[in-house]
Simulated assay, not measured.
Amino acid sequence: MKLKPSICISAVLVSLALYALLCYNGKNKVPAKSFFDFIRIAPQQLYKLDADWPRNPESIRGVPFDVAVDHLNSLVYVAQRGDNVSKVLVFTEEGYFKTAWKTNTLEMPHGIFAVIDDENLKSIWITDVGQGPYGHTVKQYSPSGALLKILGTPGIAGSRLSPLQFDQPADIFIKGEDEIYIVDGDGGLNNRLLKLTDDFSLQWTLGGNGTKPGQFYIPHSVAVDDVGRVSALNKPFSANIHCLCFMFHI
């Protein structure tokens, strides 16, 4: 099927008109190499800096260390460190201070993770690397800050797997309802990744101090993507450098 010359000419004229409109932005001309530069789909900017977040900066009196987001209720949980400060602050998505947890069962939070199902925020998990009577533990809290569950023996560092014992556990990631991943050993005895089931029993562990595949040097964080790849990150060797230790399929 051949196109009529009038149709082809009309298509060219429309394209040129569109090109002219795109090249002209108000009073200023926008340089372009070709018409095809404009018909390519530009990458969408997913994130941008909000320099005014939070709107109440005076509410943060400690050292912020990690955050967890409850997207269903548009809330942000900020874990902070310091003496005589609340260890968890809650802000709205817009950055306005909402509340502070009043729990005294946290010493030095490191990782914080929000467990969310299709309907609500179920709980907040926090790893505690403190050296005092509440440290060396992984703890589950209600959204309001009530302590629900403790993994590990508070105040005691160790490497036992049954019962579980940690030495400065750094981070936790929960996938679905039955996969719990914990990296243990933020400068302590252990350099390992543990996977627990939904009843908190050990499914497997991986690690050891070193730089070979499957080993760690101060594991710092863990995450799992939608296709089941587990990523673990070593502690930075400097202020600006992190080392991706390994990534594998579960």
Results as ranks from 00 to 15, higher is better:
A68Q: 08
A68F: 11
A68P: 10
D70Q: 05
D70G: 01
D70P: 04
D70V: 00
L72G: 04
N73V: 11
N73I: 01
S74D: 11
S74E: 14
S74R: 09
L75C: 06
V76E: 05
V76L: 05
V76I: 15
Y77P: 04
Y77H: 02
Q80Y: 06
R81T: 07
G82L: 10
G82K: 06
G82T: 01
N84Q: 08
S86F: 10
S86A: 14
V88P: 01
L89Q: 00
V90E: 03
F91R: 05
F91G: 05
T92N: 05
E93Q: 12
E93D: 02
E94F: 02
E94K: 12
G95M: 00
G95T: 04
F97Y: 13
F97G: 09
K98I: 08
T99R: 11
W101E: 00
W101A: 06
T103K: 00
T105E: 14
L106H: 09
E107V: 02
E107R: 00
E107I: 08
M108S: 10
M108D: 10
P109G: 03
P109I: 05
H110C: 07
G111L: 05
G111A: 08
I112W: 02
I112G: 02
I116D: 02
I116M: 07
D117R: 08
E119N: 05
N120Q: 13
L121Q: 01
L121E: 01
L121F: 03
K122H: 00
K122Y: 01
S123I: 02
S123W: 00
W125M: 00
W125A: 01
V129S: 11
V129T: 15
G130E: 07
P133Q: 15
P133T: 15
Y134L: 07
H136Y: 09
H136L: 01
H136Q: 11
T137E: 06
Q140Y: 01
S142L: 12
S142V: 09
S142Y: 12
P143W: 02
P143C: 05
S144M: 06
L147K: 00
L147D: 06
L148V: 15
L151T: 12
T153R: 12
T153A: 12
P154A: 14
I156M: 13
G158H: 04
S159H: 15
R160M: 13
L161W: 10
L161G: 09
L161M: 13
P163F: 09
L164G: 05
Q165P: 10
F166V: 08
D167R: 07
D167V: 03
D167G: 09
Q168V: 12
P169V: 09
P169A: 11
D171Q: 02
D171K: 02
I172K: 00
I174L: 13
K175V: 10
K175T: 07
K175R: 14
K175P: 05
E177R: 09
E177V: 11
D178V: 04
D178K: 12
